[in-house]
């Protein structure tokens, strides 16, 4: 299994570096442009959630992004040591109802689930959170 990683400060201006890093890894693994875009967007959403919710925009905190690629499975793990946030508890929104009421935010988790094949979450209470985003290479 090949594993690569990047650590970034919890700042929105670092999102572009994370997207570039993940896109490059996805391309090297064999994904096409469309899947690369989906993976980069899903990872952006996960990191944005960490910055805004887990770290409450504290720029001194660190986000760890680990990419592992093996046997047709591409997985990105986004780790933080911030406040607990469990996207599995976010219900898929009724988009028509959602849009009709012009609500903002909360779209990121829905996007992650739509863009990736699997979204998993693990929490070590009081220590760390991890979101794992998985996409399978088309055969």
């Amino acid at each position: 299994m090949k594993t690569t990683s990047i650590q970034v400060e919890s700042r929105t201006e670092r999102l572009i570096a994370v997207r570039d890093f993940v896109s490059e890894a996805a391309r090297a693994f064999g994904f096409g442009d469309e899947d690369i875009s989906k993976i980069a967007l899903a990872v952006d959403e996960a990191c944005t959630n960490v910055i805004k919710h887990a770290y409450r925009s504290d720029p001194t905190k660190i986000i760890q992004v680990n990419v592992s690629a093996d046997n047709g499975t591409f997985q990105v793990a986004i780790q933080d040591e911030g406040l607990r946030f469990n996207p599995t508890q976010v219900q898929p929104p009724d988009m028509k109802e959602y849009l009709t009421h012009y609500r903002r935010g909360g779209l990121g988790v829905y996007l992650m689930k739509s863009l990736m094949d699997r979204v998993e979450y693990s929490i070590v209470p009081g220590k760390s959170n991890e979101v794992r985003l998985t996409k399978y290479l088309p055969r």
């Binding site: 959403e45 012009y102 609500r103």
Partner: peptide
């Protein structure tokens, strides 16, 4: 990303 989409909704 959704942050941009949220602006349109706002």
């Amino acid at each position: 990303s959704s942050a941009g989409l949220g602006v349109f909704m706002a």
